[in-house]
Amino acid sequence: MVENRPFLTFLTHLVLIAGVVIVVFPVYLAFIASTHGPGQFVSGLVPLLPGPHLVENYSTIWNEGLSSSGAPPIWVMMMNSLLMAVAIAVGKIAISLLSAYAIVYFKFPFRLLAFWIIFITLMLPVEVRIIPTFAVVANLGMLNSYQGLILPLIASATATFLFRQFFLTIPDELMEAARVDGAGPMKFFRDILLPLSRTNIAALFVILFIFGWVQYMWPLLVTSDSRYYTIVMGIKRLAASADSEPLWHLVMAAVILAMLPPVLVVIFMQRLFVKGLVETEK
């Protein structure tokens, strides 16, 4: 369908630009709001151009936070979120790689059963098992701790399944050649399988990092100590002020900051991801 019709080109661009505008406008509005003073945004007339308070607003929210909402400074919450998202992504990838490796390359009793049990957990999202999971975490004394935030979210059927499907596409001869070349199971995994999975790992890291970053309900449940608040649940807390107008200019500054890491991860990993796609060939 490579046709040269100016009208079609115009139309497709129009649709694309309209789409981009619809997506970008609220983000733009949030940014604008974060550059104005306290009263500006609720005065009835929403400004569309940046105001003079950018540096002031951001440094306030970054260093001090909103003491009235009982939330710690943003940088604390950002660090918590970052730690949680990275640990979840890395943990998920490590565990999924190993379990997929076991399921595909080793013959053990009930191998298929093991695979199906993992696969079935796909049907149970976090929300469904949240009460029992909470009970377990609470009984283990992991409330208000990083372990409590991270561990229950690490097991991943999706990633295991993806790696399994990928490993199945790798020709058996490669494993056989490695065996003849004297590579044991761990050596084969490290020297052959891991480098070949690079692209998949990069792609999954992006997805899983964002998955970890946007977790809302779980951090809300297991943290009551503000030292362990994550940014996504923290924003909700910033906006909820009991008897005054929310300080939207500061909330929006927090929103913009919360958006940055996932965007950076996508931008940075996408390069690696595309590079891997172009380079790898089986």
């Binding site: 001869e173 490669l174 056989e176 050649a177 052959i192 690079r198 089986k282």
Partner: peptide, 9 residues
């Protein structure tokens, strides 16, 4: 091997 089984990376 028939398909050579060279390590692609």
């Amino acid at each position: 091997f028939q398909n050579y089984a060279l390590y692609p990376h």
